[in-house]
């Protein structure tokens, strides 16, 4: 089979899965006039994905606490109203998937969410079970993206997920890592396996991914999700102790969250950055990065130098 045949077949599968999941060709989550100016990145199926997504590690693990669940529902509502789409979770995050599902049900209608979760079990035979569990917890018929979490039992899971993708039972398949773990293995999988997404830690203070993973993702046409963009909150807490620089305001950056996130999505290899928060006001700050001019290379260098001076 030629590469062209493979590509055509893959595109038809993606189109079929997309229609099944309620997607329409073109853009995603931007059918409202106020969302037409948001920054997007092209996915392998020619849909455009908003470049700021949302993580749920720690922030959405609130159990059945009704007060906390109501708070997280407002965070998700704010995210979606600002034009966001990709929500990333994992069975490793305790109750986070169920809390996202609860929030989606509370918001009602058919929220334009790009659902991304993970398979996280050493049991290589439990892939289908975990996918079904995620669908159940999110309250969705089909997940958009399933990723092998931190390469746990990755080969067995990846084989099964790719088979599910071929059957149109999910749109995309990916792998994840965090904290700079196992980048060599990630690179090897990116070269040898037909995955759609890769997720790794990338922040202004931890730019290890830019040397090899990001160029490789671009070369292979693999979408890149930058996790831990605020280094679990430590980075943004640190920079917020300093006044926001005037030159950054003049360059069109609105606040520190905007600064840290636009730095990431300005890289041509980055598809989406996924900051996590439990607070509506912080979500609003994060979502400012979805609009406005992106820093060019010289401004990105200045942004690094400025932070190194702290």
């Amino acid at each position: 089979m030629s590469d062209t045949d493979l590509s055509r077949r893959r595109m038809l599968q993606l189109a079929a899965a997309g229609l099944g999941a309620g997607w329409l060709p073109g853009t995603f989550g931007q059918d409202q006039p106020e969302h037409r100016d948001i920054i997007t990145r092209r996915l392998p199926d020619d849909h455009d994905l908003p470049a700021i997504g949302m993580g749920t590690w720690i922030t959405f693990n609130v159990g059945s606490d009704p007060e906390a669940r109501a708070g997280r529902t407002e965070v998700l509502r704010t995210f979606l109203e600002a034009g966001g789409a990709l929500v990333d979770s994992s069975p490793m995050y305790g109750s986070a998937e169920a809390v996202v599902g609860h929030a989606l049900a509370e918001i009602g209608g058919k929220p334009p969410v790009f659902s991304a979760s993970k398979v996280w079990t050493p049991d290589g035979d439990a892939t289908a079970e975990q996918v079904a569990q995620s669908e159940r917890r999110w309250g969705l018929e089909q997940m958009d993206l399933m990723q092998v979490h931190n390469l746990v039992a990755w080969k067995a899971h990846l084989e099964y997920l790719l088979e599910m993708r071929e059957q149109g039972r999910m749109r995309f398949v990916g792998i994840t890592t965090s904290h700079g773990r196992r980048h060599a293995d990630i690179e090897r999988i990116m070269r040898e396996w037909p995955i759609d997404f890769v997720q790794a830690s990338y922040s202004l203070a931890n730019r290890e991914a830019k040397d090899r993973l990001l160029p490789l993702a671009k070369e292979r046409g693999i979408a890149f999700i930058a996790n831990r963009p605020f280094q679990g909150g430590r980075l943004i807490d640190r920079v917020k102790r300093h006044p926001f620089p005037e030159w950054a305001s003049e360059a069109g950056l609105a606040n520190w969250a905007d600064y840290l996130l636009k730095f990431l999505i300005a890289h041509p290899g980055v598809t989406c950055a996924i900051p996590a928060t439990s607070r509506v006001e912080h979500m609003r700050e994060n979502m400012t990065a979805l609009r406005g001019p992106l820093p060019d290379e010289s401004l990105r260098r200045r942004m690094i130098e400025h932070l190194q001076a702290f």
Partner: peptide, 25 residues
């Protein structure tokens, strides 16, 4: 091997506020 690749703080999957809420609940 999986668990050994994590630090203790990596395994902490909830916030202090939610932990305190647990006692309230």
């Amino acid at each position: 091997e999986t668990w050994l690749s994590y630090r203790l703080t990596d395994l902490l999957m909830f916030s202090p506020a939610i932990y305190v809420r647990l006692f309230e609940r």
